[in-house]
């Protein structure tokens, strides 16, 4: 029987929730692949994570101790290679996260495995694994297969699968020793995000968020004033922070904050990069304004306006005196 290997992600002793989404992805194709589902936890503190991963349908938990607790890409890649050598999995699932993309390509390159990244859907056709991912900035989609590859390594886009929740138990927990490798980089500590001095965008119920499409820095002031009159909190996408127009504490998205409490999200000139959508696509009512009628933001919006942001804001200011 072949195997599907899920590599768990954890940071500072906490399981990252995307791991449970990978389990769902594995369970969805296990029967067609006639495969066992094995979850590997690489690194220190693995014992503490086993209860959260004792899920229905999981056949085995593999603990892979490493000399260091922090994520180290060479160490993770070597452990992944050793796991593949030991278990010969048909499919290896890794999160398409910052740490995931830091070692998954190395495993695939070193082992000569099949590889696809940022995959949002998986299926089997006969013995073939077919992976779906986006192309051309989300405007197209592509289906990939992996002829001639015994093992296929896939990084899975967070949010593509619902998290597995049904508790299981009684599966064997196996500790697997892997050979050490020389480590050429070392973790020197985490740097916490700057505390929100004046604002907590993740607490706001109504966000007005600006993106690159606002055109110029002066617009941030105008939109801030409008947001104030509407009773909304000003937020933004990443390019606005990179340009220095607004502080990092205002950023919604993967590397910023999540709009946890938001009920209404007005997106002005935000194209809708997947990293931004990760922080807001769950919001109940998204209203998107963009000049590009094909902007990806419209795919997560309930209401849409194709308009120039500056012109629209000028009109809105008259309506919210």
């Amino acid at each position: 029987m072949s195997a599907i290997l899920v590599i768990a992600e954890h940071r500072r002793g906490v399981l990252r929730p995307v791991t449970l989404e990978l389990v769902t992805a594995a369970l969805a194709v296990r029967e067609e692949l006639r495969a066992r589902v094995e979850i590997a936890i690489i690194g220190g503190g693995a014992d503490a994570l086993t209860p959260a991963l004792s899920l229905e349908g999981v056949d085995e938990l593999l603990l892979v101790p490493t000399p260091i607790d922090a994520f180290q890409p060479e160490c993770h890649a070597a452990a992944g290679e050793a796991l593949i050598a030991a278990r010969r999995p048909r499919l290896v699932l890794i999160p398409h996260s910052v740490d995931g993309i830091s070692y998954a390509p190395a495993i695939a390159a070193t082992g000569g495995h099949g590889y696809a990244s940022d995959v949002s859907a998986l299926r089997c056709e006969g013995a073939d694994i077919v992976a779906t991912r986006s192309a051309y900035r989300e405007k197209a989609r592509v289906e990939l297969d992996f002829p001639g590859r015994q093992t296929v390594v896939i990084t899975v886009r967070p949010g593509s699968f619902l998290p597995a929740t049904r508790a299981g138990g009684g599966m064997p927990v196996t500790t697997l020793a892997v050979p050490g490798v020389p480590l050429n980089s070392e973790h020197c500590g985490f740097i916490e995000p700057e505390p929100e001095a004046d604002v907590d965008v993740s607490a706001a119920e109504f966000l007005v968020a600006v993106g690159r499409g606002i055109g110029e820095q002066a617009m941030t002031g105008e939109v801030a004033q409008l947001a104030g009159r509407m009773g909304a909190t000003l937020a933004c996408s990443r390019p606005i922070v990179d340009a220095g127009w607004l502080p990092k504490s205002r950023q919604i998205g993967q590397s910023g904050r999540t709009a946890t409490n938001c009920r209404l999200y007005l997106a002005l000139g935000i194209s809708g990069a997947v990293q931004h959508l990760a922080g807001m696509k769950h919001v109940e009512t998204v209203i998107a304004v963009n000049r590009d009628p094909d902007a990806a933001i419209f795919s997560v919006a309930r209401f849409g306006l194709v308009a120039d942001v500056a012109e629209l804001v000028a009109e809105l200011r008259a309506l919210f005196p």
């Binding site: 989609r141 289906e143 990939l144 795919s299 194709v306």
Partner: peptide
Amino acid sequence: RASRVRRMYVPQKPRPRMI
């Protein structure tokens, strides 16, 4: 080569109500 394209297509995306 680690992957092969089977097909590329334009996805049917949900559209919002346009104002």
